[in-house]
Amino acid sequence: QKAAQDAESQYKEKSKDMSDADKQKLHEELQKGLEDKQKELVEPLKKKVDDAIVAVGKTKGLTVIVNEGAVVYGGVDVTADVQAELQKQAKKN
Results as ranks from 00 to 15, higher is better:
residue 56 V to C: 00
residue 15 S to P: 06
residue 8 E to W: 10
residue 77 D to Q: 05
residue 39 K to M: 08
residue 28 E to I: 03
residue 29 E to D: 15
residue 83 Q to D: 07
residue 30 L to Q: 04
residue 71 V to E: 05
residue 54 V to N: 14
residue 81 D to L: 12
residue 61 G to P: 14
residue 21 A to C: 00
residue 21 A to W: 03
residue 22 D to L: 02
residue 74 G to D: 09
residue 57 G to V: 07
residue 75 G to F: 15
residue 27 H to M: 14
residue 50 D to N: 14
residue 46 K to S: 07
residue 43 E to L: 07
residue 52 A to S: 08
residue 79 T to Y: 00
residue 10 Q to G: 05
residue 41 L to F: 13
residue 35 E to K: 05
residue 72 V to N: 04
residue 85 E to D: 06
residue 40 E to T: 07
residue 45 L to M: 15
residue 18 M to D: 04
residue 43 E to N: 00
residue 54 V to A: 14
residue 29 E to A: 09
residue 45 L to E: 13
residue 75 G to V: 13
residue 73 Y to H: 13
residue 8 E to F: 12
residue 92 K to M: 15
residue 31 Q to W: 05
residue 18 M to T: 02
residue 90 A to F: 04
residue 69 G to K: 12
residue 35 E to P: 00
residue 14 K to T: 03
residue 93 N to S: 12
residue 16 K to C: 01
residue 30 L to P: 01
residue 93 N to P: 04
residue 17 D to L: 09
residue 6 D to Q: 05
residue 49 V to E: 03
residue 52 A to E: 04
residue 66 V to H: 10
residue 83 Q to F: 07
residue 35 E to H: 00
residue 45 L to W: 10
residue 70 A to F: 01
residue 59 T to M: 02
residue 63 T to S: 14
residue 25 K to F: 04
residue 84 A to L: 00
residue 59 T to N: 14
residue 51 D to N: 14
residue 35 E to V: 00
residue 85 E to A: 09
residue 44 P to S: 05
residue 93 N to H: 07
residue 21 A to K: 00
residue 79 T to L: 07
residue 37 K to M: 08
residue 70 A to M: 03
residue 12 K to R: 09
residue 67 N to R: 15
residue 7 A to H: 12
residue 37 K to N: 07
residue 61 G to A: 13
residue 77 D to S: 04
residue 4 A to L: 12
residue 21 A to R: 02
residue 86 L to A: 10
residue 45 L to C: 05
residue 79 T to G: 00
residue 92 K to N: 12
residue 46 K to Q: 06
residue 61 G to L: 12
residue 72 V to I: 15
residue 89 Q to W: 01
residue 90 A to T: 01
residue 14 K to P: 01
residue 76 V to W: 10
residue 82 V to L: 04
residue 80 A to N: 11
residue 87 Q to N: 13
residue 35 E to C: 01
residue 20 D to R: 13
residue 34 L to P: 03
residue 12 K to W: 05
residue 24 Q to D: 15
residue 93 N to D: 13
residue 70 A to Q: 02
residue 67 N to L: 03
residue 51 D to A: 11
residue 1 Q to G: 14
residue 63 T to I: 13
residue 23 K to R: 10
residue 34 L to D: 01
residue 87 Q to A: 03
residue 26 L to I: 08
residue 15 S to T: 01
residue 66 V to W: 13
residue 46 K to G: 01
residue 67 N to M: 06
residue 58 K to M: 09
residue 76 V to S: 12
residue 32 K to F: 02
residue 52 A to L: 05
residue 88 K to G: 01
residue 54 V to F: 09
residue 84 A to T: 12
residue 73 Y to V: 15
residue 32 K to E: 12
residue 15 S to Q: 03
residue 21 A to D: 06
residue 36 D to T: 02
residue 86 L to G: 05
residue 75 G to K: 14
residue 57 G to D: 06
residue 61 G to V: 08
residue 52 A to K: 02
residue 65 I to E: 04
residue 71 V to Y: 10
residue 14 K to F: 03
residue 65 I to L: 11
residue 18 M to R: 06
residue 66 V to C: 03
